Amino acid sequence: MSQQENIRVGISIGDLNGIGSEIILKTFEDKRMLEFCTPVIFCSVKVMSYFIKHYGLTIKVQGIDSPDKIIDKKINVLNVWKEPVDIHFGVEEKQAGAYAIKSLEAAVSALKKNQIDVLVTAPINKSNIQSKTFSFPGHTDYLNQELEGDSLMLMISETLRIGLLTDHVAVKDVSSHITRELIEKKINTINKTLIQDFGIEKPKIAVLGLNPHNGDNGVIGNEDDTVLRPTLDNLRNNGKLVFGPYAADSFFGSGNYKNFDVVIASYHDQGLIPFKTLAFGNGVNYTAGLSHVRTSPDHGTAYDVAGKGVANYESFRQAIYSAIKIFRKRKEYQEISKNPLEIKPKRSFSKKK
Rank of each mutant, 00 (worst) to 15 (best):
S2P: 10
Q3K: 11
Q4K: 04
I7V: 15
R8H: 10
V9A: 07
G10D: 04
G10Y: 10
I11T: 02
D15C: 08
N17D: 06
N17A: 04
I19E: 15
E22G: 04
I24G: 01
E35A: 02
F36L: 00
P39T: 12
V40Q: 06
V40C: 03
C43A: 14
S44K: 13
S44W: 14
Y50R: 12
F51E: 02
L57I: 08
L57V: 11
T58W: 03
I59Y: 03
I59L: 15
K60V: 10
G63K: 15
S66P: 02
I70C: 13
K73I: 03
K73Q: 15
V77I: 13
L78F: 11
V91Q: 13
E93Y: 06
G97K: 06
Y99C: 10
A100P: 09
K102Q: 11
K102L: 14
L104N: 04
L104V: 05
V108I: 12
V108C: 06
N114S: 15
D117L: 10
K126L: 05
I129K: 01
I129C: 07
S131Q: 11
K132I: 07
K132H: 02
K132L: 05
F136T: 02
T140C: 01
D141S: 06
Y142W: 08
E146Q: 15
L147R: 03
D150W: 02
S151W: 10
L152W: 02
L154H: 08
M155I: 04
I156K: 07
S157L: 13
R161K: 08
T166M: 02
V171C: 09
K172G: 11
D173C: 14
E181P: 03
L182I: 08
L182C: 06
L182Q: 06
N188D: 06
I190D: 01
I190H: 05
D197Q: 01
D197C: 07
G199E: 00
E201Y: 03
K202L: 08
P203D: 13
K204W: 10
A206I: 10
G209V: 08
G209A: 04
L210I: 07
P212T: 13
G215I: 06
G218S: 04
G218R: 09
N222R: 12
E223T: 10
L228W: 00
D233S: 00
N234A: 11
N234D: 05
N237C: 12
V242Y: 07
G244A: 14
G244N: 14
Y246H: 12
A247M: 11
S250P: 01
F251C: 05
G253M: 09
G253V: 12
Y257A: 00
I264R: 01
L272F: 13
T277P: 00
T277L: 09
T277K: 07
L278H: 03
A279R: 14
F280M: 07
F280R: 01
G281R: 11
N285P: 05
L290M: 11
R294V: 09
S296V: 09
D298M: 12
H299N: 00
K308D: 05
V310H: 05
A311L: 10
A311T: 02
Q318D: 00
A319Y: 06
A319C: 06
I320L: 03
A323T: 13
A323L: 15
K325C: 11
R330S: 07
K331S: 08
K331W: 09
E332S: 09
K338T: 12
K338S: 11
K338P: 00
P345A: 10
R347E: 12
S350I: 07
